[in-house]
Design a protein around this nucleic acid. Sequence first.
DNA 1: AATGAATGAGATTTCATTCAT
DNA 2: AATGAATGAAATCTCATTCAT
Lengths: 209, 209, 209, 209
Amino acid sequence: MKRMARERVTKDPEERRQELIDAAERLFMERGYEATAVSDIVQEVGVAQGTFYYYFPSKEEILEAIIEKDMAALEDDVRKITEDPNLDPAAKINAIVNSIIGISSSRKEIMDYLHKESNAVMHEKMERHLIERLVPLMAEVVSQGVAEGRFDVQHPTEAVEFLLASMVYFFHHPEIFADPARSKKMRSTLETILGRALGMKDYGFVLVV
Amino acid sequence: MKRMARERVTKDPEERRQELIDAAERLFMERGYEATAVSDIVQEVGVAQGTFYYYFPSKEEILEAIIEKDMAALEDDVRKITEDPNLDPAAKINAIVNSIIGISSSRKEIMDYLHKESNAVMHEKMERHLIERLVPLMAEVVSQGVAEGRFDVQHPTEAVEFLLASMVYFFHHPEIFADPARSKKMRSTLETILGRALGMKDYGFVLVV
Amino acid sequence: MKRMARERVTKDPEERRQELIDAAERLFMERGYEATAVSDIVQEVGVAQGTFYYYFPSKEEILEAIIEKDMAALEDDVRKITEDPNLDPAAKINAIVNSIIGISSSRKEIMDYLHKESNAVMHEKMERHLIERLVPLMAEVVSQGVAEGRFDVQHPTEAVEFLLASMVYFFHHPEIFADPARSKKMRSTLETILGRALGMKDYGFVLVV
Amino acid sequence: MKRMARERVTKDPEERRQELIDAAERLFMERGYEATAVSDIVQEVGVAQGTFYYYFPSKEEILEAIIEKDMAALEDDVRKITEDPNLDPAAKINAIVNSIIGISSSRKEIMDYLHKESNAVMHEKMERHLIERLVPLMAEVVSQGVAEGRFDVQHPTEAVEFLLASMVYFFHHPEIFADPARSKKMRSTLETILGRALGMKDYGFVLVV
DNA sequence: AATGAATGAGATTTCATTCAT
DNA sequence: AATGAATGAAATCTCATTCAT
C-alpha cells in the first residue's frame, strides 16, 4: 500500500548486468556458490531483489554467465595463441598451459582468504566448460605437432584431455601456490610430464607459476 | 507428548548403521548429496527420522562415513598391492591404477541412471580423501622404482599427485565408460602417459577399463 | 522450484510488522512463549511462514520487539510523570506505582484464561528490562524527595530496586487481582510499605489496584 | 538383537535417585533447565537413558524433586528458627532473612560461571515454592511480633509476601554478590526497609551478605 | 533395577522465486 | 527498468519418551 522506492537508480542494462555478475563472482569465490544467497548479491550491488530476476532467470543462470564470461576470455587467449603464426606447436602448448595456470594462481588470493573449504559446484562447472572448450583447440595444436614430427601422440584428443585434467587440479587447489617450495616442485614436475606425455625428445617446457 | 510407536524393530547397532550408510550411499549417487533428504534415507531403511540422528550427528557426517568406508577399502587394496613382494614397482603401479579405475567404472551404472548433472560435493570430498591417502603410498612405490633404476622421476610425490589428478577425472566422468570406443582410446592413452611420465623406457602398462 | 501464491496481500511494512507483533504478544500471553510456534503466529495473521522471517530474524527477536514496545510505553508514561512540574516527589512515586500496577492488572484477563502455569521466559525478560529502565528514573525522583526533606533514604537506587522487585511480583502473579479481598489487602500493605520504606512521616499513598 | 549391556552397576535405589537429582541440579544451574537434555543427565551419572525414566516419570518431575529438596531444607532451617524459644520475633525474622540470602549467595558461584543468561523456568518454580512455604511460617512470627508490640503491621501475610518478593530478587540476580560495593549498599538498604516495613521503632537488623 | 535402541512429532529457519505496483 | 514485500516448500535437527529385553 505504501510503496516508497528508495531512490531508484537506473543504469545502462549492460552495466547493471555486469555489476551483478561481478558481485556474484566475487561472493561465490569468497563464500562458495551455495553459501551465497541471491539477497547477498543484490545487497552488494544495491538493487532490489526483483532486479536480479529481471536480469537472470535463476541463480544458476548467473553462475553460468560468470563461467561463460571467464571461459570465453580464456578461450580467446588460447585461440590467439593457437593462431599465432610465429609459434611452433610446442611453444603454443607451453603458452596455453601458462595461461591456464595463470588463472588458477590469480584465484588464490581471493580464494583462500575465507573458506578454503571450497566450492565444489562452481569448480565442477568450470572444469566441465574448460575441458569442453579447450580440448578441441589444443588437440588441433597437438595434431599439428605430430604432423610436424615434433610430438609423438596416438590420440591427441584423449592425451590433451588427460593433461587438462591434471591442470584442473590446480583450480581445485589454489593453496598449492601458497607454498613456494611445493609450487616449484609442482611446476618442474609438470614441465617434465608435459614434455614426456607429448613424446618430445627434448622437453623444454618453461612454466611460470 | 509422543504418540505411539508402529512396530519397533531393534537391531544390532552396527547393522543399523550399515543399513543407513548403504541406503545413503545409494541415494547420494542416484540423486546427489544435496538432492537427498535425510527423510529419504530413513524412509528407505524403514526407520524413524530420529533414528538417523541417533547414529549420525548430521547429514554431512554420514557422507564422511561413506567416503571413509570407500576410501578405507581402496587404501586397503592399494596397501596390499604395495606390500606384495612378488610385484616389481611397475607392476604395482599398474595394479593400483587398475584398482582405482575399477571403482570408477563400477560407479557408472548407478551414477548415470539419473542426474548425470552429478554430485559436486561428494566428488570433491572423495577426490581430497583419495589423493591424501594414496599419494604417500604410491610415492613410496615410485621411489623404490627410481632406486631400482626402473623409473626416472625427480619428485615422486608431485608426479604421483599429477597422475592421480588425471585419474580422479574418471571419478567425475563415469560416462566415459559408456562409450566403448572412447573408453579404449582413453585406456591406451593412459597406458602410454603413465609409462612416459614415470620415465620408463619400455612402458608396458596394461590397464583394464 | 516454488508453487503458486494464494492471493498475495501486500501491506505497508510497518503495519505488517505491527500485526505480527500484536498477534505474537497475544499468543505468547495465552499459551506462553515456548508453547507458541511461529506457525501459530503467521496463521493468526494470515501470512506465509516466510513473511515472519522477512520481518524478524528469529522467534526470540519478536519477543524482544514486544517487550521493547511495552517497556518503551511504560517508560514513556513514567517519564511524563517524573517531568510533571505539578507533582511533588511523593505524588510522582505514587503515580508511577499506579502505572506499573495498571499494566499488571490489565494482563490478568488475558493471562489466566489459559495456562496460569505461566510464562517464565517472558516474565524474566520483562522484569529485567523494566528494572533496568525504571530504576534510574525513579531513583532520580527519590533523590529529589530526599533533597526536599520529603523522603529519608540513604541509597535511592537500591531502595528503588527493592521496591520495584516487589512490584514485579505482581507481574508474575496476576491471579492476585482475581480475588478482591486479597487484592485489597495487598494494596493497603503496599501503600504502607512504600511510605515507610521511603521514610515518610505521613505515608499517604493511594494505590488503585 | 545384540544386547550387550556395558557392565551394569546396580545401586541402592535411593542412592541412584540422589545421584540423578544431584547431577540434574548441577546441570540445570550451569546450563539452564531447557538447555539440559535428559541425555546429559544420564551421561553425567553414567547410566542408561531408560534408567532416568525408571526413577522419574518425566524431566519436569526431576525439577520438582530438586526444588522440593532445596525448599524442604530451607523450610527446615526456617522452622527451627521460628521454634527457637531463645529468639524474639525480630531476631527470628533477622535469622530467616539471613538464611534465605545465604542460599542465594552460595548459588552465585555455580550460577554465573556459565550462562548468566539465566534460568527462567527454574527460578519461577523456586520462587513459587519458596513463597508458598515460607509465607505462613514468617507470617506467624510477624503476628507474634505484633502481639508483643514489637512490630506494627496490619496484614502480616501480605507484608511478608512483599518482603519475600524482594528477597527472591536475589535469587534471580546472584551477580549482585559479585560486586562488593553494590552488595554492601543492598544489604544496608534491606536492613532499613525490613525494619521500617515491620514498623519497628529501632530497626536493628543485621544482615550477612 | 537397568538397558539403550528407537521413536516421531514438531520446531525453527532458509531462500530461490514471484508478482503487483 | 526496477522495486521489495510476500511466498511456501522443504530441510535439518532436537529430545522427551517408550519399550522390548
